[in-house]
Amino acid sequence: MTSRTSWHFNEPPLTANRSCWHSASDGGCNFAIAPTLNATQTTVTWSPELDTSAVLLTSTPTIAPTDRNLSRLLDQARAETDEFGSFFHHVLPDGDAIQVLRLASVGADEPLSALIPLDPDALDRLEALLRLVQSLLGRRVAEDTRLTHQKRRRARHMLQAVDGRVNGASYREIGSVIYGRERVASEPWKTSALRDATIDLVKDGLAMIAGGYRNLLRHRRRR
């Protein structure tokens, strides 16, 4: 089951009329995703306004060729539909997935074309479209440059740091876990660059939890 809702609990869902799970054991609350599932068992569908790598599909104009259209290769069997259209995920060979939205009133069996608004996010959408087409053609898929390995590692460290801090760990204890006890012990802690780095991890981690995580869905480009 997918959900077009944000992980920030103080925000309303991004769309209305979405199905949800009701849990009597968790205070009788409604959940967009079954609370019994863990993060590896769920797929979150983001609003294309937030996730600029979402590929928007529309009808192919009559003047465009359709005999080699690749839309027949898309697996839309698990698409979920709302007032905006049908959402589904195209899974890549490495297990990653590209979010796809077939706009409302566009038939699943008709030839499709990508819709890319002429705005600063067009470069993001072009990159996502390139990865989708590469996958459909069976070619090597380019890396998603929004979240590099270095950014993934730092995001993991930020969450580790926040988790330690809210559970009462000192900055030094957090730094020892992330950077290693020997490195932390090799210089005076009060003037250590690792101390500053650890404090920054906690600060940035708290900002990410407060809503900054949505910045991971888009590239950082000069406007």
Rank of each mutant, 00 (worst) to 15 (best):
F31A: 00
F31G: 00
A32K: 00
I33W: 01
I33P: 03
I33T: 06
I33S: 00
A34S: 15
A34C: 15
A34G: 14
A34L: 10
A34K: 15
A34F: 14
P35Q: 09
P35H: 09
P35C: 07
T36L: 12
T36C: 15
N38K: 13
N38L: 10
N38E: 07
N38M: 11
N38V: 08
N38Y: 12
A39C: 02
T40H: 04
T40K: 13
T40N: 09
T40Y: 12
Q41V: 08
Q41R: 03
Q41G: 14
T42I: 15
T43L: 14
V44P: 01
T45E: 06
T45N: 05
W46P: 06
W46A: 06
W46Y: 14
W46T: 01
P48L: 06
E49Y: 05
E49V: 13
E49I: 10
E49W: 12
L50H: 14
L50P: 02
L50V: 09
D51Q: 12
D51W: 03
T52R: 05
T52L: 06
T52Y: 11
S53K: 10
S53E: 08
S53G: 13
S53Q: 14
S53N: 13
L56H: 07
L56P: 01
L57E: 03
T58Q: 10
T58N: 12
S59T: 11
T60D: 07
T60S: 04
T60Q: 04
P61T: 06
P61R: 00
P61D: 10
P61A: 03
P61F: 11
T62V: 08
I63W: 12
I63S: 02
I63T: 01
A64W: 13
A64I: 11
A64V: 10
P65A: 08
P65S: 02
P65W: 11
P65I: 01
P65K: 02
P65M: 05
P65F: 06
T66K: 09
T66H: 04
T66M: 05
T66R: 05
T66V: 14
T66G: 05
D67K: 08
D67R: 10
D67A: 15
D67M: 13
R68T: 09
R68H: 15
N69R: 02
N69Y: 10
N69K: 03
N69G: 05
N69H: 02
L70N: 05
L70Y: 09
L70I: 03
S71R: 00
S71M: 01
S71T: 03
S71Y: 08
R72Y: 12
R72P: 04
L73K: 06
L73V: 02
L74C: 07
L74D: 01
D75S: 05
D75K: 06
Q76N: 00
Q76S: 05
Q76P: 00
A77N: 12
A77R: 10
A77V: 07
R78F: 13
R78G: 13
R78H: 15
A79M: 07
A79K: 08
A79G: 02
E80C: 09
E80R: 10
E80A: 14
T81N: 04
T81M: 08
T81L: 03
